[in-house]
């Protein structure tokens, strides 16, 4: 039901070109030329794991629709990221965003770790000349994968104090189960979502969190086993 507005000035109309990530013609593939370029001709992807790397990050799961794996080669003296290889399962914008991120990190001799960690999803989207609004989560995953790979580098090079700690986060809102609970369950031997569920009951309260829970299970299994 529409309420009678008390405003005297008419509100600014919404941009007519974007309605729920679709353009006014209902075209859901309103991808920019940059997205198309990086989707059809992706840069820096690898068909198998590279031999020479010192940072590995993986986020997402095929269940939630997007999954990325990133291998970094970081120069320990200059802390510059010289190589950024990746694989991505996902839609066109996920593939294009990972490709673009790999270019952004390695161009002009490579960004330093500190510079790379400053790259935000907005920066990636800007370089892609925009993404349909509902596709933005895809590129958010790209910078997460980069951060995970850098953390892995810190782990490998005994700089654990530099690992960007992600504080405990509530995953299942109904049962108040956090990512730390899931991590602990994996440490205690659970290797699948089902096994983690047996220990934590995650998802029984809020089934919507299952894709995220599964993502975490995969992440921690990769980390600890």
């Amino acid at each position: 039901m529409s309420k009678i507005s008390k405003k005297t000035k008419p509100s600014k109309p919404k941009a007519a070109t974007q309605i729920n990530g679709q353009d006014i013609m209902g075209n859901e593939w309103a991808y920019s030329d940059e997205v198309r370029e990086h989707f059809f001709k992706p840069q820096n992807f690898v068909t198998e794991a590279p031999k020479d790397y010192n940072g590995l990050g993986m986020v997402g799961s095929p269940a939630c629709g997007d999954m990325m794996k990133v291998w970094l080669k970081i120069d320990s003296k200059t802390e510059k990221i010289t190589k950024f290889f990746w694989q991505t399962f996902g839609c066109a914008s996920a593939i294009a965003a990972t490709s673009m991120l790999s270019v952004m990190v390695t161009e002009k001799g490579g960004k330093t770790i500190a510079e790379a960690l400053k790259i935000t999803p907005t920066d990636i989207i800007k370089r892609l000349s925009g993404l349909p609004s509902r596709k933005i989560h895809c590129s958010v995953l790209g910078d997460k994968a980069l951060e995970a790979a850098i953390n892995d580098y810190f782990q490998r090079t005994n700089q654990k104090e530099r690992i960007k700690a992600s504080g405990s986060r509530v995953i299942d809102k109904e049962l108040n189960i956090t990512d730390k609970d899931i991590e602990q369950a994996v440490k205690d031997g659970a290797k699948t979502l089902e096994e983690v569920q047996q220990k934590t009951k995650v998802g029984l309260g809020d089934p919507n969190c299952l894709p995220e829970a599964e993502e975490l299970v995969r992440f921690y299994v990769e980390k600890y086993y």
């Binding site: 989707f39 059809f40 629709g65 996902g90 839609c91 593939i95």
Partner: peptide
């Protein structure tokens, strides 16, 4: 398996 539908659609559209 192992790949995502929208990416396939976009290639098919090409």
């Amino acid at each position: 398996l192992d790949i995502e539908g929208e990416a396939m659609l976009l290639h098919l559209d090409e």
